[in-house]
């Protein structure tokens, strides 16, 4: 069992780094409440291995975070939130950069879980394909194919279609 010093170190880590991890959690879940729950779950799991990872905990916690999200099997009713529900379509006119970003954001939210995870790790965390594969416990080939599928989905997403009529294929 970790000692008091380890606990203090863990608490310091939570204070210092949890906000950054929360951003990733939010991009994965697209829900503030779920993101907080995911982050807290990942941190609590990490605590039980803290003495093994405390010299370099963040990649470990991030890995737990991503894999907990990917394999979030058990949601008790009181914490349960649908994660794949199609969001309401907003009344954006599609003419401004803000609207376009909003549409893209919505489209990312509609990606399947694993594709979304790959997009977040590659383009938000700036991980390499190899690092993303290691994080997800899969091959580089899987990362490549998932990323390719994700970008293809974003290209054909109905919310973005009007833009692609004019500027097709820029997401690649």
């Amino acid at each position: 069992m970790p000692d008091h010093a380890a606990r203090a170190d863990f608490d310091d880590f939570v204070a210092a780094r949890s906000q950054a991890l929360l951003r990733t959690a939010y991009l994965l879940t697209r829900d503030h409440g779920l993101a907080e729950d995911l982050l807290q779950t990942a941190l609590s799991k990490a605590w039980f291995s803290w003495q093994k990872v405390e010299t370099r905990p963040e990649p470990y916690v991030r890995k737990i975070l991503v894999n907990t999200y990917a394999s979030w099997w058990r949601r008790k009713w009181n914490g349960e939130r649908p994660t794949d529900e199609l969001p309401e379509q907003g009344g954006h006119d599609g003419t401004s950069a803000v609207d376009a970003r909003h549409d893209l954001s919505d489209a990312i939210g509609r990606l399947p879980k694993r594709q979304r995870a790959v997009v977040v790790l590659r383009y938000f965390e700036d991980l390499s394909e190899a690092e993303t594969a290691e994080m997800l416990g899969c091959s580089r080939g899987t990362v490549k194919s998932q990323l390719s599928k994700a970008l293809a989905k974003l290209r054909i997403d109905p919310a973005l279609a009007h833009e692609h009529d004019e500027q097709a294929g820029e997401l690649r």
């Binding site: 906000q19 907080e36 982050l39 970003r101 954001s105 990312i108 692609h164 690649r172």
Partner: peptide, 26 residues
Amino acid sequence: MNTIDDLKATLAADASSVDGVPHTAR
């Protein structure tokens, strides 16, 4: 619009929506 740079910018903007949540509650 909708280049990889746009994708990165959108992710960054979305991620910032959780900024300001106090860690003491966490």
